[in-house]
Design a protein around this nucleic acid. Structure first.
Lengths: 151, 151
DNA sequence: TTATTTTAAGACAATAACGTCTTCTATTAA
DNA sequence: TTAATAGAAGACGTTATTGTCTTAAAATAA
């Protein structure tokens, strides 16, 4: 899997927050979000804590509490979220997992993969929450996980 | 991680076999391979069994035993090996893991990822064991894992 | 101030990936 | 035929990821 489950949940939740919070200065309830996205509440909470720690979200406890974006969704890229949750390894590490792989001592697929992973990085960096959220509305795209997760 | 560890080990081992077996009609010892590549013998054995079951390698028990390619290394792509070990999911599944993601009911990053993963597939399919093995020799590239695996 | 709501934090459990070990079977060579 | 070699198969253990549950802390509203 390219992205961890935590990371995909974090992306879906961030898109949800971007959409919900658009014209309201309100915190988005994690409980409601977990219900609508079909993600375990406690698990989602833990993931979102990573996003608050990296200053992508702010949270508020108590009634009317929840999470909100720290800045405009135009200023948050999908790359920000991926790195906050999964770390930068996907965009820096050797495909074959060889430590020290690089220009000096490349692995057999170093060059090819270096290009591919840079493309991937550009793709994530080129899409903001605003862009993506707009696409979601424009094309009525899905965010939620299906009830049955069996494949 | 894009490829599982099993898969990267399988790729490294396949390259080793391609190199060792080039001018010899001999089976390549798994024990020797595991020593030189710094991969656990038993673990590597299990991985290579997937490659024998998918008809990429043949094995022989007993003295002078080991594994060998079933066909010329020009006819084996890295994609063959990746799919044999990790399965085709990387090249077919939604980045966000949404079952049923596709043209009809795409996820927010469907189109972008569909392109990226196709590029990735083409990259793996475009490199044969022969190509890659040639690169390894031409540029004296590394195959083995370092002694310390701590990062 | 007190009760209620809601996130934070951390313990704990389930699952899957990774890795090790033992036993079995097939092959070679003496 | 027998002993030694080497892969096959499967049991078992370890680690990381995923998921659940309980308790604590903070904010709101009465």
């Amino acid at each position: 899997m390219v992205l961890s489950k935590s990371c995909t949940y974090g992306l879906l939740a961030s898109l949800y927050v971007a959409k919900q919070g658009k014209n309201k200065n309100e915190y988005v309830s994690i409980r409601q979000m977990s219900d609508e996205l079909n993600i375990s509440f406690h698990f989602l909470t833990k993931i979102l804590q990573k996003l608050t720690k990296t200053n992508i979200l702010v949270s508020l406890k108590g009634p009317k509490g929840g999470v909100a974006l720290t800045r405009a969704p135009q200023l948050i890229t999908l790359l920000d979220i991926v790195i906050a949750i999964d770390g930068p390894d996907l965009f820096t590490e050797c495909l074959l997992g060889l430590p020290g792989c690089g220009i000096q001592k490349p692995c057999p697929v170093h060059e090819r993969w270096a290009e591919a992973r840079e493309d991937l990085r550009v793709m994530f960096q080129g899409k903001t929450l605003a862009d993506t959220s707009h696409d979601v509305e424009a094309h009525n795209l899905r965010l939620s996980l299906p009830d049955l997760i069996r494949k």
